[in-house]
């Protein structure tokens, strides 16, 4: 009994617990309103949350470097990578592998440019990534008007609908990506450098943690993860469209904060990313299931996120550290 109780409090004390508790509350509200089974409700939202989760992992890595760093280029990088991937695929399966490489390469390239602007040119991340994102968006407009729209590879589209024992393959990919990022953060030297840089830049430099290259790599990783998101999104929507990445700006940042990652850097929570992403998709499902005007929906979504952030920032019980 004692161990169950202490285990319960241990979970509550984790920074990521708030996002899962909030998700649970919404699911409990959603299930009576739904005309589908509870498992159906959870699984289809889990599927939609997978895309947000992968993109938000990249955001989390950048945020973890501290000094208020955010990657505002993520939505545009995703759109660009979806275009690049589908253009290489040409609606066929022959170049699927090349398209994955191309999407990852372009994502990493955009990330490297972000890193260059932040580390070498010393432009604040918020401004630098916005500017780079604007450039990416302009490239997309050129691509979309010259290359036109070609469909995604049928095999990839097929994979987007496939599942293993009821769990969508894309969600599985998202979980694996989370595990890889968790390993990177908590079991490798780079993870130590990243969190150390985020906690205290000067101390990190004195300890020989090379904060500059750590930051640069963080942006490249964010671009890579945007590239992965893009490959899956292309399969999901069967091709590219100009608004494909648009929703990822707010959602990637909100999932990070809801998930318990400190915006000031130095503390990451990989588990919380999935909780945060789930919470956001559940919230949208809830507001569209309730019959209300669009303005009201956005207000409710905004308020709920603010409240969750306010509670999350206090960590329910007390600081885990």
């Amino acid at each position: 009994m004692q161990t169950i109780k202490s285990g319960f409090f241990f979970i509550l004390r984790q920074p990521w617990s708030i996002s899962f508790i909030a998700s649970l509350v919404i699911v409990l509200a959603l299930i009576p309103m739904s005309s589908r089974g509870p498992l159906d409700v959870v699984l289809s939202n889990f599927y939609l949350a997978s895309f947000v989760a992968i993109a938000a992992l990249g955001q989390m890595i950048v945020v973890s470097t501290g000094r208020g760093a955010v990657d505002l280029s993520i939505p545009y990088t995703i759109t660009l990578c979806v275009y690049v991937a589908t253009i290489v695929q040409e609606g066929k399966n022959d170049h699927l592998f090349q398209s994955i490489i191309a999407s990852l390469a372009i994502g990493a390239l955009v990330g490297a440019i972000n890193g260059f602007a932040v580390v070498v040119l010393r432009i604040p991340a918020m401004v630098a990534t916005l500017a780079v994102g604007f450039i990416a968006q302009s490239v997309v407009q050129v691509l979309s008007s010259t290359a036109g729209h070609v469909g995604a590879s049928p095999a990839l589209a097929e994979l987007s609908r496939a599942d293993i024992f009821g769990l969508p393959v894309f969600s599985l990919i998202a979980i694996i990506t989370c595990l890889v990022v968790a390993f990177l953060l908590f079991r490798t030297a780079y993870g130590v450098r990243l969190l150390g840089t985020g906690q205290n830049d000067i101390a990190a430099r004195l300890a020989g943690l090379k904060p500059s290259s750590t930051r640069w790599i963080a942006f490249v990783l964010s671009g890579l993860l945007a590239g992965i998101t893009a490959i899956l999104l292309g399969g999901y929507s069967g091709g590219a469209s100009l608004g494909v990445g648009a929703g990822f700006l707010i959602s990637s940042i909100a999932a990070v904060v809801l998930g318990g990652t400190l915006m000031s850097g130095g503390q990451s929570s990989v588990a919380g990313i999935f909780g945060g992403a789930l919470f956001l998709t559940f919230l949208v499902t809830l507001t569209s299931t309730l019959d209300m005007s669009f303005g009201l929906r956005s207000i409710i979504e905004g308020v709920v996120i603010l409240v969750a952030l306010g509670v999350g920032g206090r960590n329910i019980l007390k600081k885990s550290r």
Partner: peptide, 23 residues
């Protein structure tokens, strides 16, 4: 159900997908 699609395929797909979870 009513969702915002912004005249965009990707936005529509995501939002209708969310609605189909309960519809």
């Amino acid at each position: 159900g009513e969702v915002a699609g912004n005249w965009d395929d990707a936005t529509t797909q995501t939002n209708v997908g969310g609605l189909l979870a309960t519809a």
